[in-house]
């Protein structure tokens, strides 16, 4: 899952970024409200964690700006205020969920999974495509009931392909999902990962569509 984290506190931002990365997610961290407002125009994220008290522009402003431009990015609001009115205002402005600091990383992860699930129109954290099964909660995948030994990157690619079975996913989308802004991938790294994934789930399960990307066969 590619996560946009907007948090101006250095220690908290760092902790969330590192913790979420350790859980296999790609996190792009911004500390400024103005930057956050335009970041979603350039990149595609699966979910955003948005602090409300930000320098230069408040989180509420950023959220309202996103929604006014019909950006439906699932947003988890993170705030230091346990104020009921603010919670209601944030949800009414377009937040999908609301969590008050301090919150355990497991809780944030669960909320992010729920947002992702809801955005994909799924009822639970499990996905299936033919003999392939994937469970987001414990980051496990199976082929015909046999557990697959996947790296974090391989899991992320399989998860993304399974979200759109039968539809192509571009290599750029997969690159941004895997690396975000913080690391420049090798030019063929996605190809290498697709190759490794094919060797584990079967070559024919992932098709290459020239000029379009990769598609999971249904």
């Amino acid at each position: 899952m590619r996560i946009l984290l907007v948090e101006d506190d250095r220690v908290l931002g760092d902790g969330l970024r590192t913790g979420l990365t350790l859980e296999g997610h790609t996190v792009d961290w911004l500390e400024d409200g103005e930057d956050a407002a335009i970041a979603v125009d350039r990149e595609r994220f699966d979910v955003a964690i948005l602090d409300l008290a930000l320098p230069s522009r408040s989180g509420m402003d950023v959220l309202a700006d996103w929604r006014s431009r019909e950006n439906s990015l699932p947003v988890l609001v993170l705030t230091a205020t346990g104020d009921n009115a603010q919670c209601i205002a944030a949800l009414d402005t377009g937040a999908d969920d609301y969590v008050v600091k301090p919150a355990e990383l497991d809780q944030i992860l669960a909320r992010l999974r729920a947002l992702q699930r809801r955005a994909a129109g799924k009822a639970d954290n499990r996905m299936s495509c033919g003999a392939l099964h994937l469970e987001r909660e414990n980051r496990m995948a199976w082929l015909a009931d046999e557990p697959l030994d996947l790296s974090a990157y391989e899991f992320a690619i399989l998860e993304t392909l399974m979200e759109h079975p039968g539809r192509p996913v571009s290599p750029e989308r997969l690159e941004s999902l895997l690396y975000g802004w913080n690391a420049m991938p090798e030019s063929n790294s996605v190809q290498v990962l697709i190759h490794k994934l094919r060797s584990k789930i079967g070559t024919k399960r992932i098709e290459t569509l020239r000029g379009l990307g990769y598609r999971l066969s249904t």
């Binding site: 908290l12 902790g15 969330l16 590192t18 346990g82 600091k101 919150a103 990383l105």
Partner: peptide
């Protein structure tokens, strides 16, 4: 009280997040 709560929550959240990292990494 609201101010104190607000001002303490952020460093507390930062502490917790770093503790989570230390435990998981």
């Amino acid at each position: 009280a609201s101010f104190v709560s607000h001002e303490l929550r952020t460093p507390l959240a930062g502490s917790r997040s770093q503790l989570d990292v230390a435990k998981r990494s």
